[in-house]
Amino acid sequence: MNSLLLIWTVNALTALTPLPDTTPLEKSKVFAYPVHHAENNAYLADEPFVFYYASSLEKKESLQASDSFAVLIRVIGSDQNEYRLGNLITLNSMPELLMKPLQNGLYRYVLIPKDKFAGILPPDVEIRQMIIRIYSIPYCFQDRCEVDGAWVFNFPCSR
């Protein structure tokens, strides 16, 4: 009886102990690198930002057969205005927005936000927030070609 009680106590304690979240890829179809454990989701605009999409975890049926994806990136500047890299009309003719296919249905897009928006942002305006959406290519201008979700990343520091 005592040993049963001990086993129950150990099990209960194990269940209550929070385990560190070390597997972003297994849980989410989208993740970014460098991985920051802080909850503020903060990044640096002048450092490489790597964005991954695991299409094998995609639940939307219309996207499961797709093998080409592109990103649309919007940023909010320190002047509170929004700036865009590409748009839906030109998406099919912008190879620089294509994600690079890796193995096992993984797609990767890498950029240095400050460099990518160098000619788009006015001088002295800093990137404060970046919003990324993913589309299957060729884009069909319908919901079935859009990956559900918009991913937001913060850039709180200026250099």
Partner: peptide
């Protein structure tokens, strides 16, 4: 590794 600014330190950035 970049030398972090005060802002970077406060957000846990700059360790890459």
């Amino acid at each position: 590794s970049r030398q972090p600014t005060e802002c970077m330190k406060s957000y846990g950035l700059g360790g890459t």
